[in-house]
Design a protein around this nucleic acid. Structure first.
Lengths: 240, 240
DNA sequence: CCCGATTGGCTGTCTATACATGTATTTATA
DNA sequence: TATAAATACATGTATAGACAGCCAATCGGG
């Protein structure tokens, strides 16, 4: 009875999410009732119900018994308790992502990087600098060092097509990550790239990742304070 | 047919979680199949399925089609943005903590606070402002709003002896927390209190906490960028 | 002894139906 | 007119039954 590779409830979820992204339904709006969706989409109410319930848990919708289902109010921030791909995050917001490769080469490792990777000071490591844009507005400067032993062909990648995150997690799944968050004033050159004013504070997230217990990557991400926040929720352990 | 106060699927979830906590089922173990649980608990398979599916999404279980349902391995999360008591943190570093109470009174709630607590705009809420020092150096400015319905005698506390965190967690254990981290420039008065220079970026951590599903506290913590960072380690999460 | 096909058990999904429960509106009543 | 009851409609939960899809173990034949 299930024709495609995707289950019905998934397709319903995507269809609802698409309508929200397209602006057919805006935050605060009431969407069609379950009964209406049943008629419109030709699936059973339990299937509709599952789709709406999951979208509610995911924060896209809010439901009020006896009243209706509504598009949740704006959820501006990017979740960053988890290690995630900025291109995906931006795509989820329905925006356009574009990355610009500013640097991509092998060079002698700074001392702290060499220490992280367990290399002799001055050993050559891979270094990339990318500027990520959301709808053409700079939102993240990514300054990354990678241990060549775990990503031999790092320099041959086209990071405008696939972010370093995607490439690295494909060849070396993350087993562990360490984060440090600081408020900083960016350097003059960084400020120019991000197109921000002097004295505008930025969030700097430094992340070191391990794969199979071995350090793989050391990345410094700078977000313009005026355009970005990090957020997350620690859920209860018991019920939903 | 149902109608205890809790739905069946919730009770099934709790029962499974309890067995895991009790050690009846350990990480990696296979738990009873859906069919077995149907017989044992006398509810339908769809109900069992919903319980197991939600526990899987929450990370408690792992399911493999054709094989079975297993207790998930590790318990990641936490560390970063763990909700902690600053007095304890400072004590752990072997330093001296001192808090100064700058404000402690009831006042009309700002709109966003009223919304968080589900109160009418302008309702009176408790408001406290504390300056925390580590070895006499200001390290955190704590600006907190509390729902009076959950902490009636908040104003009678001596917060130089016991931090609001300790008091609140004692009377209303945290069930959920939401964090937002921003880089900001503090106001002039905040700058004076923290004894920092103009243009020094600060980390601002906004935390909302819930107890038993109800919002209890909304606190804004400001850390001088030059003296503080947030850090932590996490393990990766599966998707969805 | 190895290898392929069969089979039984498990999860994944879908449906039709039923009743419970919450909310707002409308109607009836004091 | 104010208030209470009825009602319409929404979501929330529960059920039995069906079939699909995946996997491991078993069973036969070479």
């Amino acid at each position: 009875m299930n024709q495609q590779l995707v289950p019905h409830y998934q397709r319903v979820k995507r269809m609802i999410a698409d309508r929200i992204k397209a602006g057919t339904w805006n935050p605060g709006d009431r969407i069609s009732s379950e009964a209406e969706l049943v008629k419109a989409l030709g699936v059973s109410r339990m299937t509709i119900n599952r789709a709406l319930r999951e979208l509610t848990i995911e924060g896209t919708l809010t439901r009020v018994q006896g009243v209706g289902t509504f598009v949740a109010m704006a959820k501006p921030q990017a979740a960053l308790f988890e290690v995630r791909n900025i291109a995906e995050e931006i795509a989820e917001r329905g925006h356009q992502h574009r990355a610009e490769v500013l640097t991509l080469k092998a060079e002698p490792a700074p001392d702290d990087i060499a220490a992280t990777f367990g290399l002799k000071p001055g050993s050559r490591v891979f270094h990339s600098v990318l500027l990520h844009r959301e709808n053409e507005l700079p939102v993240q400067l990514e300054d990354r060092y990678v241990d060549p032993r775990h990503a031999a062909d790092y320099l041959q990648q086209d990071f405008t097509r696939q972010t370093p995150y995607v490439y690295l997690t494909a060849i070396a799944p993350i087993s562990e990550a360490e984060h440090i968050i600081e408020a900083v004033l960016p350097s003059t050159s960084e400020r120019k790239l991000l197109k921000i004013d002097a004295h505008e504070p930025c969030l700097q997230l430094t992340r070191r990742t391990w794969s199979a217990g071995k350090p793989v990557s050391h990345v410094r991400l700078i977000y313009p304070g005026s355009r970005y926040r990090l957020s997350g929720r620690i859920a209860p352990k018991r019920d939903i």
